[in-house]
Structures are given as structure tokens and as C-alpha cells.
Amino acid sequence: MAKFRNLLAAAIAAAGLGLAPVPVEAAETPAPPEHTWQFEGVFGTFDRATVQRGLQVFNTVCSACHGMKYVHFRNLKDIGYNKDQVEAIAAQYTVTDGPNDQGEMYQRPAEPTDAFPFPYKNKEAAKNANNGAVPPDLSVITNARPGGPEYVRAVLLGYEKAPEDANLSPGQYWNKYYPSHKISMPQMLVQGVVDYQDGTKATPKQMAHDVTAFLHWASNPHMEERKRLGLKVILFLIVLTAMLYAVQRKIWADVEK
């Protein structure tokens, strides 16, 4: 508690005195490179094949450490899976349920109504397994990082050999785009880690593109509906406003300036 209050006091003092700490890494972390996505723009949609490949990357790679507690297996219907496929995908995961009538918690295969589970018992277990770092929940990850999907893709691909004076702790890796560069997630998207069901060649770049598109869908599941509705609303408003302008001109025509 004392530590927390000191931290608090420091932050407040800094903000109040106009000395708020400058993010040093902001100066030296390069901007993530531009990338073309199919979900961009007024007519952007989630390419089903891309997002489904992304799900495969998530299932095979990411889900070993990351959960998505706000994304449910039932939501996968939105990216082109039918009921049976959704049940089969959910069944690959194990969730803790209970208590049962003996008062015990138990493990069971996930169902469509479950969310993508966090693979560790709790945060402490996650820290213990990852040199003190907790793998973040990925439900809204592309909304939760400055730079959005571009940033997420750049980090997945941004692993480099650390400079001589980097001072990496054990379990840390050097990433060009990660703030402070020292990331606790190893480079996961390497050649051969995923064998795509649709036969697409699973290069690191391809996997990063696919899984980021999937995560962007997970963060914004209503994006397609939003953009479709937006087009209708705005076209309607333009016509309505133009007519209101005409009415206004007509009504004001008899007023002397």
C-alpha cells in the first residue's frame, strides 16, 4: 500500500508540476509500417478466409499463453463457421467449471457459450511461467494499443538481434516496435509453426497479417454492420439536409435582407 501511495504521489506531483514523465521510448520506437488491410475504408469487410486462417494461428500459437475473455466461441458464427464447426473449435479448449454437486471444480471441453479461456490458473501462475510478465488478454487488443492493427502486426514481426548494450534479462527479447524494445514474448510466428488448412503458405508475414485481422475482428465484431449502417444513415442525412436547405431557401425568399 505504501509503495502504491508513493507511486501515486509521484505521478500526481509530476502531473501537477508540469513534469509528467516523457515516454523516452516514444522518441526511439519507430512508427509501425503502413499495411493494407481489407477491413479498412468505408466499404472495408473482414475477408473470411483471412480471418479464419487468423483463428487457426490463434488456436495453434497465441492461445498457449493468451485468453480472450470477452470473445465467445459462439461469436465465430459471424466469421463464417456453422454450428457444428463452432462446437468443434470450442471443444479443442478446456475450461474450468463448477462447483459440481460434490462441491468440486472440474475441467470440461469448452462449449459455444464459453469465452476463449485464459490458459493459466491465475495471474500469479502466468507470471511464474513467463519471467514475471502476464500475457495480456487479447479481446480488444487492436483497439487498446496506439497504432492499432499496424502496431500489433509490427510487433509480431519486429524481432531483431539485440544490440550489444541491451542488458536483456532472462526471458526478454528485443523487438523493434515494442515500447522499451524489451518484450517478454518470444518470436512465435516462425516458418512452419502453423500448417494452414486451406493450403496457403504460412510465412511469418502471412501469419502476422491473418492473425492481426482476426484480432481486429475480435476487437470490433460489429465493424461490418457499423460501416453498412453508416453508409445508409449518412446518405439519408445528406438527402434530408439538402431538402431542408431547399425548404429554407424557399421560406426565407420573402425576407428582405
Binding site: K227, G230, V233, I234, T241, L244, V247, I251, V255
Partner: peptide, 23 residues
């Protein structure tokens, strides 16, 4: 006179708001 002018202004306002809300 001003009901129609305010409605026209509202139309422009809603278009601008919609651009942000939807896009």
C-alpha cells in the same frame, strides 16, 4: 424561419457526428 434554419443546421451536425460514429 428559424425552425427550418435550425433543422438544416441539425442535418449538417448529424452528418458530421455520423462520420465519426460510423467510420
Amino acid at each position: 424561419y428559424y425552425t427550418v434554419k435550425d433543422l438544416f443546421g441539425l442535418g449538417v451536425f448529424l452528418i458530421a457526428l455520423s462520420l465519426f460514429v460510423f467510420y
